[in-house]
């Protein structure tokens, strides 16, 4: 049994965006804090710390999850993907480019979480329709855009398994 005592720091190792990373964390350190403060991966944002706003959403082992509701010690050995993984050296990926095209972001604070949810959904349901996209987006709060550009951006890339772009 892995038993980690309170108040002491324990080494955590996992894969972040395809690279092995490690850092020390007390059991109570939130994954969102670990990503940002220990690993310097500031792309994952924190908006509520109670699982309601969705800003901190990341992918973990092929699921979109709230990083504020996980402790760093819980992701030992797992594979995590964050917003920093999306763009290629050549530029933005399709979803990101569509977000820019449709003005799907303003302040950009909620955007990384939304990108991660939509990325996960696209892996699971590449042909998701607007109703399903809105259903999944309802796990995110965006106060700037009214969601219109986000939905349009998603519709641009969903249902595109044969590469119309």
């Amino acid at each position: 049994m892995r038993y980690l005592e309170a108040g002491k720091r324990h080494t955590v190792r996992f894969t972040l965006n395809g690279r092995a990373v490690e850092g020390d964390a007390e059991p109570r350190l939130l994954l969102s804090d670990f990503l940002r403060q220990t690993l310097g991966a500031f792309g994952t944002h924190v908006g509520c710390e109670h699982g309601s706003c969705g800003a901190c959403t990341i992918q973990m082992d092929g699921k979109a999850v709230r990083s504020c509701l996980l402790y760093a010690v819980q992701v030992e050995g797992k594979a995590l993907t964050t917003v920093e993984n999306l763009a290629t050296p050549d530029g933005l990926n399709e979803l990101q480019a569509a977000m820019q095209k449709h003005h799907g972001l303003q302040c950009g604070f909620c955007t990384p979480g939304i990108l991660m949810s939509l990325t996960q959904l696209r892996e699971e349901e590449p042909n998701a329709d607007e109703a399903r996209i809105r259903d999944v987006l309802s796990g995110h709060i965006c106060r700037c855009t009214g969601y219109d550009g986000i939905v349009k951006a998603a519709l641009d890339v969903f249902g595109d398994v044969f590469g119309k772009n």
């Binding site: 049994m1 892995r2 038993y3 980690l4 309170a6 059991p27 109570r28 939130l30 402790y71 819980q74």
Partner: peptide, 21 residues
């Protein structure tokens, strides 16, 4: 909004979990 300190246990078996409980 940060949790209070706690010990974290990740048992390998259900038996370990029940023993700890």
């Amino acid at each position: 909004m940060k949790p209070a300190a706690f010990d974290y246990a990740q048992p390998d078996t259900l038996g370990e979990a029940l023993a700890l409980m």
